[in-house]
Design a protein around this nucleic acid. Structure first.
Lengths: 124, 124
DNA sequence: ACAGTGTATATAATGAATATACACAATATA
DNA sequence: TATATTGTGTATATTCATTATATACACTGT
């Protein structure tokens, strides 16, 4: 588990934690049954309150990503990765829609966008 | 001026107003010197407080998009549209970077993204 | 005078982040 | 075997920042 926080980000801390853990599960870095760091250890590492990490894990549990057991810890839940991927792809599509609307406003063509996408992709 | 508010959106109302006005300026629907609706009229139309529209105009003025004159109204400021476009394009690039990161997580290739972008673009 | 502008101050409502005290599980050790 | 200790997650009350508001003020043009 390697979580990076940006305190200057406009995103709430617990959201940053959530999305990074989701991504780790989705990409297979975290597998079913594997323990997550305890809320206290994670809070200490991130120099953040226990309530904040708790909030993140709580949400993740409500969304079915993890399971928490009092006294034991929090673990990656069993799930169909397929469904998770679908929701992630919907998220990507939504982002693309926003990009397209913005592109219209400033007069960029599809070809311009494709070009931008290509060059950005290569930078990774 | 045709502003649409989504009250279920997570974005603050004044942010929605701001970005829509920015886009109208960028796309040329609002031109230099043209008056914006008064904060009271806009507030009434949107069924929102005067303070909220004021906040939006205030921010827009601080960012150089408009000029407010007590007793007269608020007007589109003179500005180099080029600079605005640049910042909008930076915003688009940033969105694309996010999309690419998400795509990596879920294993989408550049070609997959290009395809998605193309189909989304045609839907508009 | 009046009706239209933008402005300023004080206030309520929401949500993020916190400290602190609580309840349960596993383990070391007397 | 008993129990003290340490490590888990949980619940409550509080602080702080941001969003949104009502209301009273100040200026401009007719």
């Amino acid at each position: 588990m390697n979580i990076l926080l940006s305190h200057k980000s406009n995103k709430p801390i617990y959201e940053q934690i959530k999305s990074q853990i989701k991504n780790s599960i989705l990409s297979g870095q975290l597998i079913e049954g594997e323990p997550l760091p305890s809320i206290r250890k994670l809070a200490k590492d991130l120099e953040v309150s226990v309530i904040t990490t708790k909030r993140a894990y709580e949400d993740l549990e409500a969304e079915g990503y993890v399971t928490s057991l009092v006294g034991k810890g929090t673990f990656v839940a069993k799930q169909e990765v397929g469904k998770l991927k679908e929701s992630k792809i919907r998220q990507i599509e939504h982002h693309l829609e926003i990009v397209i609307e913005d592109a219209q406003v400033v007069g960029l063509s599809l070809e311009n966008l494709q070009q931008l996408l290509k060059s950005k992709f290569k930078e990774e």
